[in-house]
C-alpha cells in the first residue's frame, strides 16, 4: 500500500523493516512498531493515513503471533538489547570502514540504518545521551560521505 505523504518520515523505518523481514524478524517487528507509534502521532485522522495504519497494525499483530516464542518480542528488556546491539554493530562496522578510509555505499547505508535503529530504540523509552550522540553522528556521517562521493570529493 502506498505510504501517504503525511507519513513520509517513517518510510525509511518501514523500508528497513522490509529489508529485515527474513534476515532478522525482530528488527522488522520493532521498526514497524516504531513506525506505528510515530504514524499515529503524525496523522491518524485523514482516511488514507488511518487505512494505512490499520494495515500496519494488522501486520504487527500477525508478526506478534508468528514470533510468540521469541523472548525479544515477549520481553521488552530483551527486545531493547537486541535492537541496541544490532544498531551498534552496524555503527561500529561503518565507523571502522570510515577510519580505514574505505568509503562506499555499504558503509553509508550502515551508518544510516544504525541511525534509524537508534530512532526505533525510543519505543523502549528515552534514549541515552550516548545513543543520541551516536544517532546524530551516524546520520551526519552518512549524509556527508554520500555527498562527497556524489560530488567526486574524497571524504576527510
Amino acid at each position: 500500500m502506498a505510504l501517504p505523504p503525511q507519513l513520509k518520515s517513517i518510510q525509511h523505518h518501514l523500508r528497513t523493516a522490509q529489508e529485515h523481514e527474513k534476515r532478522d524478524p525482530v528488527v522488522a517487528y520493532y521498526c514497524r512498531l516504531y513506525a506505528m507509534q510515530t504514524g499515529m502521532k503524525l496523522d491518524s485522522k485523514t482516511p488514507e493515513c488511518r487505512k494505512f495504519l490499520v494495515k500496519l497494525m494488522d501486520q504487527l499483530e500477525t508478526m506478534k503471533k508468528e514470533l510468540a516464542d521469541n523472548d525479544s518480542i515477549t520481553q521488552e528488556v530483551v527486545g531493547n538489547a537486541h535492537i541496541e546491539n544490532y544498531a551498534l554493530k552496524m555503527f561500529l562496522y561503518a565507523d571502522n570502514e570510515d577510519r580505514s578510509g574505505r568509503f562506499h555505499k555499504n558503509m553509508i547505508k550502515s551508518f544510516y540504518t544504525s541511525s534509524l535503529l537508534l530512532d526505533v530504540l525510543s519505543v523502549f523509552g528515552e534514549l541515552s545521551e550516548e545513543n543520541i550522540q551516536h544517532r546524530k553522528y551516524a546520520r551526519w556521517k552518512a549524509t556527508y560521505i554520500h555527498n562527497c562521493l556524489k560530488n567526486g570529493e574524497n571524504p576527510q
Binding site: 512498531l33 506505528m36 507509534q37 499515529m40 491518524s44 485522522k45 482516511p47 488511518r50 495504519l53 490499520v54 497494525m57 504487527l60 499483530e61 506478534k64 518480542i73 515477549t74 520481553q75 521488552e76 527486545g79
Partner: peptide, 27 residues
C-alpha cells in the same frame, strides 16, 4: 455527514490506540 464521518474517524482512531496498547501489553 460531517459529524458521522468525524465520529467514525475517532472510533477507528480509538480502536487503533487500543490495539496498539494491547500489542504492547502482551510484550
Amino acid at each position: 455527514t460531517g459529524s458521522v464521518g468525524t465520529s467514525v474517524a475517532s472510533a477507528e482512531q480509538d480502536e487503533l490506540s487500543s490495539r496498539l496498547a494491547k500489542l504492547r501489553d502482551q510484550m
